[in-house]
Amino acid sequence: MDFLAFAFIQRALLASALVGLTAPTIGTYIVQRRLSLLGDGLGHVALAGVGLALMTGTTPLPWAVGICVAGALLIETLRQKGRATGDIGLAVLFYGGLAAGVLMASVAGQGAGGLSAYLFGSLNTISTADLWVVGGLAVVILLIALGLSPQLFAISADENFAKTLGLPVRFYNYLIVVLAAVTVTTAMRTVGLLLVSALMVIPVAAAQNIFRGFWKGLWGAMAIGLLASVGGYLASIYANLAPGAMIVLLAIACFVVSWPISTLLHRDWHRSRTAHGHDG
């Protein structure tokens, strides 16, 4: 464990832990709303921000956050106006972001290769300044996503009913996609923009297999996300392999293992359900 003395490894571990906690937290609401691939699309949009930063010679994270949030607001506006029923508008936005990112990177003289650290993550190169930004954003995301969890659950589960509770549904809908956009961009240096959606969805799916109930599933998804992120990064050091890929593969392993665990844990429920019978 001597490698833990290296500052860059400490920074990488902390960053992966933060992303491992935040991505499944937001992912829980995204999955509940059946928008599992939203993170993937937002990752494409964020690339335009990275390209813009490369072109202007500035720090990528603020640009990526700004562009990704703007894209998320546009997506939600289209959804609320009922104009996102087809895939076309979303596809134009997502692939337009990707193309714009690649184009601006090539204008900056870096080509598509200049984007690879953001597409696939680059945990070992995270600076102290990056870590402060990622840490600050992660704290804000967790405070909002956990503090408002009853409201966010209500609108994710049943939007119409939430309106009849007097909740500001439109505001909370925008809040969820903005939090998703910020989460995507904070994760771009860890698992990368192409794999971030996996960390938002797979720990949630695994937790829903094991834990019964929304809130138990939320905490379970955070625990599995943390395990996959920190465990995946440590495994990548031992095996000298790409950290982002290891993190996602470990999350998938958790998901696969969750099936037999689910069967064992919920066997009693199947028995009692058969015994009590159903109406309707």
Partner: peptide, 24 residues
């Protein structure tokens, strides 16, 4: 018109009390 997978019966019913609780 809901997405209530992995949600318990108590959680569904409790969401009906949200209007009374600003912090939820």
């Amino acid at each position: 018109s809901v997405s209530l997978h992995s949600t318990t019966v108590a959680e569904v019913v409790a969401s009906g009390t949200l209007a009374r609780r600003p912090l939820g």
